[in-house]
Computed example of a mutant assay.
Amino acid sequence: MTGKQFASVWLREPRKTASPGRSREEIVQAAIELLDAEGLDGLSMRKLGAKLSAGATSIYWYVAHKDELLELVYDQVWGEMTMPEPEEAGWRDTASALAHSMRAVILRHPWSADLLGRLPALGPNAIQVADRMRRMFRLAGFKGMDVDYAGSTLTAYVYGMTIPEVAWNSAMGEHQYDPAHMQEMVTRAVKDYPDMLERIEMTAYDDPQAVREVAFDFGLVSVLDGLERRLAT
């Protein structure tokens, strides 16, 4: 008994149109603009065709279905992530730069959080990031499968911190909660826990975005310290 055949837009040669029309790059850029404005639920071949002043059928020349289109935009997201060459910057600075860039890109394109792990990352941009990450951890001293484990540890940390932030930002934008009223409600909820109450009243929380960025960096440094400690032992 055989399973379903694995397919990806990246595993076949891109089609070349015989007549003047929209390029694949233009289609991908328009799709990203739609996704940024309306999210995954707002993307359809019909809407994309209207945005491009072209019929949906012309888009199907480049992609067989919506998932293939999402593969293309997903790889474009990977292409926005920046990191220096590990051999020039050293493994820790490279890892830190990648992690911060990865978080920034996901926050810039919040819909991409729903594609992580759902679509294969087989595009040229994603593979380039993966290759550079592997070189980074080999440079650090990891060997064999530990290179993969270190990479998955780093990305799991970034995803684990960033995806809830995406969800929170979405909820805040959708419901427009009043910050003062929210603080009042949370204060009431934790009134019997002095330490938590003290934290809520800290002036630093006047800038929650700054707190999230400091928390991300604190955790990232801790993860890198842990990986470095593992190498030492």
Results as ranks from 00 to 15, higher is better:
E25G: 08
E26R: 01
E26F: 12
I27A: 01
V28M: 10
V28Y: 12
V28L: 13
Q29K: 15
A30I: 03
A30S: 15
A31T: 12
A31E: 03
A31C: 15
I32T: 05
E33Q: 15
L34H: 00
L35I: 04
L35M: 11
D36R: 14
A37D: 14
E38V: 05
E38S: 14
G42W: 08
L43K: 06
S44K: 13
S44Q: 11
S44A: 11
R46K: 13
R46F: 15
K47G: 15
K47M: 13
L48I: 00
L48V: 08
G49S: 07
G49V: 07
A50Q: 07
L52M: 00
S53R: 09
S53C: 08
S53D: 03
A54K: 01
G55C: 03
G55L: 02
A56F: 12
A56R: 14
T57Q: 13
T57E: 04
T57L: 14
S58C: 01
I59Q: 06
Y60N: 04
Y60L: 08
W61P: 02
W61Y: 15
Y62S: 03
Y62E: 09
H65A: 04
H65L: 00
K66C: 04
K66V: 00
E68M: 10
L70T: 01
L70E: 01
E71Q: 15
E71D: 12
E71R: 01
E71K: 05
E71T: 04
L72Y: 06
V73D: 02
Y74L: 03
Y74H: 05
Y74F: 09
Y74N: 05
D75V: 15
Q76V: 11
V77W: 00
V77I: 12
V77Y: 05
W78V: 04
W78T: 02
W78S: 06
G79W: 07
G79R: 12
E80V: 05
E80C: 07
E80T: 01
M81W: 07
T82E: 09
T82Q: 07
T82K: 10
M83I: 01
M83P: 02
M83S: 03
E85I: 09
P86A: 07
E87A: 11
E88D: 15
E88R: 11
E88Y: 10
G90E: 05
G90R: 02
T94G: 07
T94M: 13
A95E: 10
A95P: 02
S96V: 12
